[in-house]
Each structure stands twice: as structure tokens, then as C-alpha cells.
């Protein structure tokens, strides 16, 4: 007999839909990323780009996969590094499309991961935080049952469990995502909390001042230091509180604040793909739970009318 607390942690997810959202969301963001990498591959992926592979490879462990290895193997056959980049981008695209569709999902996830790794490490200096988050997503797609809902596989029942105890698999898988999200937010919150800029308001002021993030002219916002300070302190508090409050009845509130934080990052700093990854991860981890809470709230029995005068 499992305790209610353990049930709350591991047995709450009732379906594989959160994992389907996870799979489709990660695949959609990977496709958006591939479109950018393909269009600007001369700048972001090329062997002789602004930072050539011969230099960027030195910053990597030799045991990590890289396109320079493949290029070296294929060079005797007259295959150029540009052709290798193009081939890997094409293979990655096909694998991600199959992953999104949920066709032979596990094989597609492995292929997407195997092609993503050398692409990522070929251009590792160009991948900001999104590179690691997408790798985390692809890694989980290989092991979690992400293809059991909203997939071509589910129609063919290829990956459906035979033992009839699917709820536990879904719950355990979603629990892994939840714990990983707690690690992400706790680390981000702690790392910010040790910096003075995050208590004075200067962190957001500086981010808004950097040309790489400027979406609007917000230079006049320095006239409102309390607003900037509230925003930075609020961001730290949301991230530090997240790993605690998601296990309490305040789950909906803290996840909503976290999602609003990512929407603000997308709109104000232009980090659309990164914000999309974080929103997808939150929806996969806690979306079903929040949806159930919303349904309970909207279907709650209406309050009893007060007795009228007799």
C-alpha cells in the first residue's frame, strides 16, 4: 500500500498525453532550429566559419561526437565538410519529422539524438542555453514512452505496453520530468541569488540594454528602479520557490508564474525558441495536473443559495 504522498509524486499522471506534448513540442522546436541552422549554415556550422572547427574542437572532449571526425573519414572519398553538414542537417530533419509524427518513435528519437549531437558540437560556440535543453529533451524522448499518444505508433499499437499497467509508466516518466524541472529552476534561482545584480534590479536593466536582446527601446525604464528591482527579485523568488511549491496546492500558481516569466523573456529579450522549450517542458511536467485542477474548479458544485425568508 503506497502512501498518499508517494501517490501524489508518482501516480498522478493518468495518461501519456503529457509525454505526447513533450515529444511534439520538442520536435517542433528542433524543426524551427534546423530551419535557422540550414539557412545560416555558412555562418553557424561551417568548417571554415567565424570560428573554424580546428579551433572550436579544441574546447571539446575528444570523446564527444563531432562532424570533423565524419569529415575526416569521408575526405578520401571526395566528400567535403559542407556536404557532411548538409547531410546531417537533412538526416536530422527527417528524424525529427518522424519523431513529431510518432512514427517508429523510439527509433526516430534515437536518430534525432544521434544526428543532433555532432551538429551541436560542430557549432557548440553558437548554441546558447537552448542547446543543452534540447539535448535533455531528446535524451528523454529516447527512453520515455513519448509515442503512446497522438502518434502514428499509437494507431498501430506498436509501442503499447502489454502488461496493462500503463498508468505507472506515465506517472514515473512525468515524475522524472518534474524532478528535472525542479533541478533546472533551483539551479537557475541559486545561481542568480548570489549575484548583486539580481537584488538591485541591474540584471534586467543590463539585459534590456544589450543590443543582442533589444526588441524595444526601453531605455527610459531606468526611471523606474523599483519596477526593475521587483522584476529581478520576483524572477529569483519564482525560480527558488518553484521546486518547493510545485509539490503543494500552490502548484498552479507557481507554474503559471514560471510560464509568464518565459513569455516575458520571449517578448522582451527575443529568446523565442528558448522560452518555447521551457514552456513545453512545464506543460509536459505539470500541464495535465493543472488541467485537472482547472476542470475541478470549473465543474465544482455551485454554492448553495442562502435560505430565503420564510
Amino acid at each position: 500500500m503506497k502512501s498518499p504522498k508517494r501517490n501524489f509524486l508518482f501516480l498522478e499522471a493518468a495518461s501519456f498525453k503529457p509525454l505526447a506534448i513533450f515529444r511534439i513540442g520538442i520536435a517542433a522546436i528542433l524543426l524551427a532550429q534546423v530551419q535557422v541552422l540550414w539557412r545560416y549554415r555558412d555562418l553557424l556550422m561551417d568548417e571554415f566559419g567565424p570560428v573554424p572547427w580546428v579551433l572550436s574542437d579544441r574546447l571539446l572532449d575528444p570523446l564527444l561526437p563531432r562532424l570533423s571526425y565524419v569529415t575526416a573519414w569521408l575526405a578520401p572519398y571526395g566528400v567535403s565538410s559542407g556536404a557532411v553538414v548538409t547531410a546531417f542537417l537533412a538526416m536530422h530533419t527527417i528524424a525529427v519529422v518522424l519523431l513529431a509524427a510518432g512514427y517508429r518513435t523510439r527509433i526516430a528519437a534515437i536518430a534525432a539524438w544521434a544526428t543532433y549531437l555532432p551538429l551541436r558540437y560542430a557549432g557548440h560556440l553558437y548554441f546558447y542555453g537552448i542547446g543543452g535543453m534540447l539535448l535533455i529533451g531528446l535524451f528523454y524522448c529516447m527512453f520515455l514512452p513519448v509515442g503512446r499518444e497522438w502518434s502514428l505508433d499509437s494507431r498501430r499499437e506498436i509501442e503499447r505496453a502489454k502488461d496493462g499497467n500503463e498508468a505507472l509508466d506515465a506517472s514515473l516518466s512525468v515524475a522524472v520530468l518534474r524532478i528535472h524541472m525542479c533541478i533546472v529552476y533551483l539551479a537557475a534561482g541559486i545561481s542568480k541569488s548570489v549575484g548583486d545584480q539580481w537584488w538591485s534590479g541591474d540584471a534586467i536593466w543590463r539585459a534590456l540594454s544589450l543590443p543582442r536582446f533589444q526588441q524595444f527601446d526601453l531605455s527610459q525604464i531606468s526611471a523606474f528602479p523599483l519596477v526593475l528591482q521587483a522584476a529581478t527579485v520576483g524572477a529569483v523568488l519564482v525560480q527558488v520557490a518553484y521546486p518547493v511549491l510545485v509539490w503543494t496546492p500552490l502548484r498552479a500558481v507557481i507554474v503559471l508564474f514560471a510560464e509568464l516569466l518565459h513569455v516575458a523573456i520571449a517578448v522582451l529579450l527575443g529568446l523565442w525558441l528558448f522560452s518555447a522549450v521551457m514552456i513545453v517542458l512545464n506543460v509536459a511536467a505539470f500541464g495535465e495536473s493543472l488541467w485537472k485542477a482547472f476542470q475541478r474548479w470549473t465543474h465544482a458544485a455551485p454554492p448553495q443559495p442562502l435560505p430565503g425568508p420564510s
Binding site: L63, G129, M133, A187, A188, W198, L210, P211
Partner: peptide, 22 residues
Amino acid sequence: IYGGYTGAATRFNFFAPAVPTQ
């Protein structure tokens, strides 16, 4: 190396502890 293949060695210190210049 394990983290390099799985994402487990990812740091989540986005904009932290300070926002650098550009």
C-alpha cells in the same frame, strides 16, 4: 562525457550570477 551525450552536464546559470556585456 556522460553529460555531453545526455545533457546531464548542462548548467542552468542563465544570466547568472551576473549579466555580462556584449
